[in-house]
Write a protein that binds this DNA or RNA. Structure first.
Lengths: 212, 212
DNA sequence: AATTATTTGTTACACTATTAACAAAGATTA
DNA sequence: TAATCTTTGTTAATAGTGTAACAAATAATT
C-alpha cells in the first residue's frame, strides 16, 4: 500500500462510479472481477482503476482480481454508504421537480429530505414525497444538512447561496448559470447545462474524431 | 500569437462560459474588461483566462484590457453562434421535460428541435413547443442532427445509443447512469447526477475546506 | 513630455492525471 | 509438482492543466 493518504480529486470523483458498477456486478451474482473487466464496464483505463484502488491499499489478489463482495463492502464504508446523507433542494422548477422525482436513494444512500421554493402556489404541496417549504424560512428550518442542490433561476442564485451558507451548508451542487461566491470553507460543484451542451457541440464541430 | 492551433480540452470547455459572461457585460453596456475583472465574474484565474485567450491570438491591448464587443464578436464566430445548432432530445421523462422547457436558445443559438419517447401517452403531444415523436421511428426521422441529449432510463441507454449512431449523430450528452459504447468517431459527454452528488458529499465529508 | 500605472501575452515552473510496462505473486493447468 | 497463465500493485515516463512572475506595450496622470 502506498503511504500517501491524500486521495487525488480525479480518483475521488470516480469512486461513486466504481461503487455503482460493483453493485451491479453483485446483483448479477458475480463474485470476482478484474480491473480489465471493470474497465470495459465503466470506460476507465484498467491501469487507472488499479492505481485508484491502490490508494486504499492492496484490495485485490494477483492472478485473481478483486472479490466483488469485499470491494463493495470496502467502498460502502469509504463512501459512507451505511449512513444516509441528507440533502436539501432549493428551487422547485422543472429541473428541481425532476430531481425530487429522481430516486437518488435507490442505488445509494442519498436522500433529498427538504425542499424550498419562493412560489406560494408550490409552497405546502408535496413533490416526490417531499413537502415544499417557504424559501424565506430557509435559515430557520434548515438544520444539520451539509449539502444542497441549487436549482433556482440564475438571478436568485447568489442571494439563496448566502442563506445556505448562513444555515451552515458545506457543499452546494450549483445547476444555475450563475457563478456564486462562497466562503472558502464551502465547496461548490458546478453543473452548467448550457456550457456542457455548447462545449460538446464545439468539440463535435472542431475536433471530429477519427473513424476507427 | 502562439503558433499552436490545437486548443486544450480544458480551454475549449471554458469558451462557452466566457461567451455568456461577455454577453452579460455587453448587455450591461460595458465596453472594456480586464482579465482580472472577468476572473472575478467567472471564478477562473486571470492568468488562465489570458492563456486561454492567447490560443486565439492577441485579442487584447496591454494596459487597456479587452474590448467587450470585439471579443464577443470573435467568440460568436469561434463558437459558431451565428448558425443555430439543432439538437435532439431522447426520453421525455422528468429530466427530459425539464430540458424541453429550459430555454437553451435564449442565451445561445442552440435549439432542441426534435424529441422522442417510447410512451404512447406522450407521443403526439407537445412539450415546450416540441412535438414528441415515436422513438421507434427515430432512425427514419432523425436527419442532419449532430448532437443528442440522452435522458432515457439507464436500461434503455445502449439500445437508443445504437439507434442514434445509425442515424448519424456525432455527439451525445448522456444523462443516464449507464456507460454507453459508441464507435470512436462519436463523442460522448457524460453527466451523472448521482455521481456528482455523491462525489460532492465525499469531498465535503473527507476534505473539509479550511476557514479563511 | 516625462513619469507612473495598468494590463497583456508568454515563459517557466509546479502540480495533477493518465497510462504503458513489468516484476512479483498467486491461480490454473498439465 | 512443475510449468504456464493471469493479474495485481507500482514504477517511471508522458501528457495535461494551472498559475506566479515579468518584460513589453500601452494608457493615464502629472
Amino acid at each position: 500500500m502506498e503511504l500517501n493518504n491524500k486521495i487525488p480529486q480525479a480518483t475521488a470523483k470516480r469512486l461513486p462510479l466504481y461503487y455503482r458498477f460493483l453493485n451491479n456486478l453483485h446483483i448479477q451474482g458475480k463474485t470476482r472481477v478484474s480491473s480489465k473487466e471493470l474497465s470495459e464496464a465503466v470506460k476507465v483505463d484498467s491501469a487507472t482503476i488499479r492505481r485508484d484502488f491502490s490508494y486504499f491499499g492492496a484490495l485485490g489478489r494477483k492472478g485473481y482480481g478483486y472479490n466483488v463482495e469485499y470491494l463493495l463492502e470496502f467502498f460502502r464504508k469509504t463512501l459512507n454508504q451505511d449512513t444516509v446523507s441528507n440533502v436539501a433542494l432549493i428551487g422547485v422548477g422543472n429541473l428541481g421537480t425532476a430531481f425530487l422525482h429522481y430516486n437518488f436513494s435507490k442505488s445509494n444512500n442519498t436522500k433529498i429530505i427538504r425542499a424550498y421554493d419562493a412560489n406560494p402556489d408550490v409552497i405546502g404541496t408535496e413533490v416526490g414525497h417531499v413537502l415544499i417549504e417557504d424559501i424565506n424560512q430557509l435559515e430557520e428550518t434548515l438544520a444539520n444538512i451539509d449539502v444542497a442542490i441549487l436549482t433556482v433561476p440564475g438571478s436568485a442564485a447568489q442571494s439563496v447561496t448566502d442563506k445556505l451558507v448562513k444555515a451552515g451548508v458545506k457543499g452546494i451542487l450549483n445547476f444555475t448559470p450563475a457563478r456564486i461566491t462562497v466562503p472558502t470553507e464551502v465547496r461548490v460543484h458546478h453543473i452548467d447545462l448550457t456550457v456542457e451542451l455548447q462545449s460538446l457541440i464545439y468539440f463535435v464541430e472542431h475536433y471530429p474524431m477519427d473513424k476507427k
